[in-house]
C-alpha cells in the first residue's frame, strides 16, 4: 500500500535568462510505513522534491497523489503564487488540510517560532485547525497530546523554555514533536541532522528510527550516507531524476529492506 505517489514531477527555477531544471520527470512511490532516504549532492533538488511531496511547493508539471487523490491542480490551472483567494480553491484547501493533518515537517534549521516556548510551539501545530467555538476543549486535548509527545522526545522538563534557551539537538526534538503532535501519516525530514554535532545527530536519528519501527512513514532528505543508513530505502537524486542505487554503496545496502521504488528514467 503506497502512502504517496509522485508522477512526472518537473520543477525548474528561472535564473536570469536560463532555466535551472531541478526535477525532471521524476516518479516516486512512498510505501506506507517505509523510511525513505533521498540522497543527493547539495543543490541536486532533494529539498525541492521533499517540499513538493509535502505540498509546500508546487511543481510545474507532474502530480502527487495522496490516498489516490491529486494534491495539485492540473498543470494548466496551476498557480505558482499564492493569493488570499486561494483559500477558496478546493485544491489549495486540501493541501492546507494535508499539511495540517496528514503531513509533518522537520527542517534542518528547526524553524521554531522564537516567541513561543517549547509547549506552545508544539501546541500551535495541533491547534492551528481548531475551530474558535471548540477552542477550550480542543486545547485541553491538544495539551495532553503535546505533553505526551514532548515526553516521548525527552523534553518534558523543558516545556517553558524558549527555543533560544535550548541546544541544537533539543530544538530539533521540539521540531520533531511539533511535526508528530497531530499524528501525521507522513513525516518529512529535511536534513534533520545537518545542523547538529555527531552525537546529537545520532540521537535524532535513533528517535526517527524508533518512530519508523512503530509504523511511521518517514521521508528524509540527507546528503550524509551514514545518516541514510537509518532508512530502509535509499534513493539518489541526480540531474533531476531519481536513479537506482549503485551497487556497493553503503547507503544502498539497506534498500533491500523495503520494496524497490520505481525509478524515473
Amino acid at each position: 500500500m503506497n502512502e504517496l505517489e509522485a508522477r512526472g514531477l518537473v520543477k525548474q527555477y528561472e535564473m536570469g535568462r536560463s532555466n535551472l531544471v531541478v526535477l525532471h520527470d521524476c516518479d516516486l512511490l512512498i510505501p506506507r510505513g517505509s523510511f525513505t532516504a533521498i540522497m543527493g549532492k547539495s543543490g541536486s533538488g532533494k529539498s525541492t522534491l521533499l517540499h513538493i511531496l509535502g505540498a509546500l511547493d508546487v511543481p510545474q508539471d507532474g502530480q502527487v497523489f495522496f490516498d489516490g487523490q491529486p494534491i495539485f491542480a492540473p498543470p494548466a490551472q496551476r498557480r505558482h503564487t499564492t493569493g488570499i483567494g486561494d483559500v477558496l480553491s478546493p485544491v489549495e484547501r486540501r493541501r492546507i488540510r494535508l499539511r495540517r493533518t496528514a503531513f509533518g515537517f522537520v527542517f534542518q534549521f528547526y524553524h521554531l517560532l522564537p516567541e513561543l516556548n517549547v509547549l506552545e510551539n508544539v501546541l500551535l501545530a495541533r491547534m492551528i485547525g481548531a475551530s474558535a467555538w471548540r477552542w477550550l476543549s480542543a486545547r485541553a486535548e491538544a495539551r495532553r497530546d503535546a505533553l505526551a509527545i514532548l515526553q516521548r522526545v525527552g523534553l518534558e522538563q523543558r516545556l517553558r523554555h524558549r527555543p533560544a534557551e535550548l541546544s541544537g539537538g533539543e530544538r530539533q526534538r521540539v521540531a520533531i514533536a511539533r511535526a508528530l503532535v497531530h499524528r501525521p501519516r507522513v513525516l518529512f525530514a529535511d536534513e534533520p541532522t545537518g545542523n547538529l554535532d555527531a552525537e546529537a545527530g545520532a540521537n535524532i536519528m535513533q528517535l526517527l528510527h524508533a518512530l519508523h519501527r512503530e509504523g511511521q512513514t518517514i521521508v528524509m532528505v540527507t546528503h550524509d550516507a551514514q545518516i541514510a543508513q537509518y532508512a530502509d530505502r535509499v534513493l539518489r537524486l541526480e540531474h533531476g531524476r531519481l536513479i537506482a542505487p549503485r551497487r556497493g554503496e553503503d547507503a544502498t545496502a539497506r534498500t533491500t529492506l523495503g520494496p524497490t521504488p520505481p525509478i524515473s528514467t
Binding site: 493569493g83 483559500v87 488540510r97 495540517r100 524553524h111
Partner: peptide
Amino acid sequence: TRDIGIVKAIGGSSAGVA
C-alpha cells in the same frame, strides 16, 4: 517571513496568516 512559512507549513492558510 520565516515564521509565516512555518505557520503555513504546519497548516496555516493564506487567509489565516493575513
